[in-house]
C-alpha cells in the first residue's frame, strides 16, 4: 500500500518537473495565430480596415473584435484564406475591390510641403521641405494614405496595368465552339 503511494507520488513529482521544465523551455512568445493572420494580410498598412496597420488588425481578428472581410487590398482571396485559417465563414468583402495601384506625384504641382512624406507608412516618398517629392514606386503599397493630406491635390493613384514583368499564363480554358 505504502509503496504504491510512494511510486505514484514519485511519478507525479517526476512528471510535474518535466512539464514545468517544458513550459519554460518551449515557451511560445506572443500569439502564433496573430503571426499567421498577419502573414495573410497584404501589409499595405493602409488602415482601410479601421485599425492603424496590418498588425493591429490581425490582433483584433484574433481577439474576435474584428470581422475578416475588412481588408480591401487583400481582396476576396485574402478573406477566403483567413476564413480557412480561422474556420470562419467567408463573407463578401465590405468594400469594393480595386485594381492594384501606386501613387504618383505630379512634380509640376508639388509645393514640397512634406505632408505626404509624413503620411507614408512605408517611407516610399522621398523629398525635402520646399523640394518636390517623388514616389519610389517599387516600395509603394498603394495604401492611398498620402492622397488626402496633399494640400494641392497633386497625388493620384495610377493603376498598375499588365506588363511583361507581371504578365501571367492564364488558366487553360476550353473554348466552346458554337454548334449550329
Amino acid at each position: 500500500m505504502l509503496t504504491a503511494i510512494a511510486i505514484m507520488a514519485l511519478g507525479a513529482v517526476v512528471l510535474g518537473a518535466a512539464l514545468g521544465y517544458a513550459s519554460i523551455k518551449f515557451r511560445v512568445e506572443g500569439d502564433p495565430l496573430v503571426e499567421k493572420i498577419e502573414a495573410i494580410l497584404p501589409q499595405t498598412q493602409c488602415g482601410q480596415c479601421g485599425y492603424p496597420g496590418c498588425r493591429p488588425y490581425a490582433e483584433a481578428i484574433n481577439k474576435g473584435e474584428a470581422d475578416i472581410n475588412l481588408c480591401p487590398p487583400g481582396g476576396m482571396e485574402g478573406v477566403q484564406r483567413l476564413a480557412e485559417l480561422l474556420g470562419r465563414e467567408a463573407k463578401p468583402l465590405e468594400a469594393e475591390e480595386k485594381p492594384k495601384a501606386v501613387a504618383f506625384i505630379d512634380e509640376q504641382t508639388c509645393i514640397g510641403c512634406t505632408l505626404c512624406i509624413q503620411a507614408c507608412p512605408v517611407d516610399a516618398i522621398v523629398g525635402a521641405a520646399k523640394q518636390m517629392h517623388t514616389i519610389i514606386d517599387d516600395l509603394c503599397t498603394g495604401c492611398e494614405l498620402c492622397v488626402p493630406p496633399c494640400p494641392v491635390e497633386c497625388i493620384t493613384m495610377e493603376p498598375i496595368g499588365e506588363n511583361l514583368d507581371n504578365w501571367k499564363w492564364k488558366y487553360p480554358v476550353i473554348e466552346l465552339k458554337k454548334v449550329a
Binding site: 497584404p42 496597420g53 507608412p121 512605408v122 517611407d123 507581371n166
Partner: peptide, 19 residues
Amino acid sequence: AREKEKNAADQAKARFEWK
C-alpha cells in the same frame, strides 16, 4: 507572382515597423 507579392509584403512590413 505570389512569391513576388510575398516579398513585397515582407518588405513593406519591415519598412512600416522601422518607421
